[in-house]
Design a protein around this nucleic acid. Structure first.
Lengths: 344, 344
DNA sequence: CTGAAAGCGCTTACAG
DNA sequence: CTGAAAGCGCTTACAG
């Protein structure tokens, strides 16, 4: 039943075992493994040696019971198979690892109920914070967690919840410049490819882009699909290119759909990009840089997001710095005409 | 310093708080939240109500101290930005979530020293098991963990370590059929695109493919790069197509490199696939199914891998079922000629 | 600097 | 079915 024990009592060595062997108290053992605690070099050495011999490893679970700082961080994700989610998680877990934080990841599906349950589950781990990367936990549930003392950090989901930390993007600036790109590129018939069920961040992109475009006297053709996948992007392009108002510029709400749009425009309709059609994406996933796509897009500030999450975990940080806005920079590649680039 | 406490003592409610309010013992509270424990409907109801009012949530960390089953699972990953790794992690965390396991993920970089440190760190969490998805922790380190009673499960890294559970792929069958594909497709000059630093699974693919090809009287041209990225795939194709022995068939050790090969062959050399060149990959990442690639490949048994990992976590499972071999099935798409498909 | 003691929040034999 | 008690493995005031 127990897996190959090493210690005589059938379990891994505990601080008592080490104390006994080193001929000191458990406190001394604890202090030896606590940064900045006061132990004499001598006892320290004895403890270290005994620990080595017994293959002792501090039990973090037990430590977490008394110490606040070593509490884990919970990360709520979904759709890890999608590049944006995977890249964000990659940056985040790397940063947390460096900051000596332990990351518990909870893969909530697309079901909003699952997100809610996961958030509640988070309470069971007495997490230092819960980071919501995806899924849309109901506002009510988020508020409840916050009331119970749980710190919640929402990444890229610009909800209007009080007392919650948001890390978001300055969509206003980004969308303003997106519109200008299309204008400079000489596009007149512009389509927007989005999703029917909109998360706050998708909604922001859609709304602001539309508003700024209208301010320039252009009414966008809006296409909305069931999901934000590659296949949905293909479907969008098929329907748009067969329609009466064939667009000469398409803004896709995310890169994944943009990739589908590109392949369909080229392979099924024989269009040349950017000559016949300009395409703009959002996220800067790895595939946007592949030769087959060479997609002009806006880069998510992956590294900065991770940095801010880690920073906001430090105990000195107040709960009140509740909104951090980062900027998404345009990445110039080949799906927009050269004229789209602003003159310096 | 403390984050918005709810309980009067400044912390989240504990089982004592609930017991007091419900007028029962702590044992009764514990039993109420333990599946299959014996509590009368009446006390159960009282406890549940008090818990509700106090927003009580069992502290899993504390529970883990006494209960074996609720120990977490550690997952060692790296390169989460690469599709294969992300997809595997997606399947795994979903399965673990369903099995009520908590997943701690440790993002080890590419550094082998980091993998070693991470594996050691794993001991601190008294994990039920450590699952190694990537990185190559030194054999010595793995053995040491096993000796300390840590269960280690290696996924797709066919090392020769005793006492360690392996989940691997029947590369022999897969590579045998890969060779036959190229032969049926009528390819004569076959290249193998691999990486200089070979993990056990890459090595197996490379060795077996080469051996079976030689058995057919064909000597493959072997190209090895620094990494297994898209960009390395591009580089491989450039060098191979400029060389004296231009191949008519290329087997890429993974899909990511295959995508790079395809784009370069088409866009830089104007080749038609599969007419001028056949390409075969391995992994079946999402991009292999994109219209721009339509890559014939072998599918990793993602779902089965996740299933077996979860199954081997059950306490009844002995430590000795140390090698599980799954099969990777060919996925027929457009980068191999139609003749490559075996006749039924 | 050091150790005895109390505490963190749970679970689980053991009696009743 | 139930509760008092001991235990899980740590940390941290408190005296010395």
């Amino acid at each position: 039943m127990k897996a190959k024990p090493i210690a005589s009592n059938g379990h891994a060595a505990s601080s008592s075992d080490v104390a006994r062997r080193a001929g000191v108290s458990r406190s001394a053992v604890s202090r030896t493994f606590t940064d900045g605690a006061s132990v004499s070099a001598e006892t320290r050495a004895k403890v270290l040696q005994a620990a080595e011999e017994l293959h002792y490893h501090v039990n973090f679970l037990a430590r977490g019971l008394s110490k606040q700082e070593s509490r884990p961080v919970c990360i709520l994700v979904s759709n890890l198979h999608k590049p944006y989610h995977a890249q964000l998680l990659d940056h985040l877990t790397t940063a947390l690892q460096i900051a000596q934080r332990i990351s518990i990841i909870i893969n909530v599906g697309d079901d909003p109920a699952a997100a809610s349950a996961a958030l509640e589950q988070t309470l069971n781990y007495r997490a230092a914070a819960t980071i919501v990367l995806s899924g849309a936990p109901p506002a009510l549930m988020v508020r409840r967690c916050v009331e119970l003392g749980q710190r919640v950090i929402l990444v890229n989901r610009a909800d209007d919840l009080a007392d919650v930390q948001h890390i978001s993007i300055d969509y206003e600036t980004a969308m303003r410049s997106a519109v200008q790109m299309f204008l400079r590129a000489g596009c007149h018939k512009i389509a927007l490819v989005s999703r029917a069920v909109r998360t706050p961040s998708l909604l922001a992109r859609e709304d602001l882009f539309t508003r700024f475009l209208r301010a320039e006297g252009i009414e966008p053709q809006i296409w909305r699909g069931q999901s934000t996948t590659y296949q949905t992007g293909q479907q969008a392009m098929r329907e748009l290119l067969v329609g009466l108002e064939r667009p000469d510029g398409v803004f896709c709400i995310n890169d994944l759909m943009a990739c589908g749009c590109i392949d369909t425009a080229r392979l099924e309709f024989g269009l040349r990009l950017p000559e016949d059609l300009c395409i703009l994406g959002f996220d800067d996933i790895a595939q946007a840089d592949w030769a087959g796509y060479d997609l002009t897009t806006f880069a998510q500030p992956y590294t900065e997001i991770a940095q801010f999450v880690v920073a906001s975990l430090s105990p000195s940080e107040t709960m009140t710095a509740d909104r951090i806005i980062l900027t998404a920079r345009p990445i110039w590649r080949g799906t927009m005409r050269a004229s789209a680039v602003p003159k310096p």
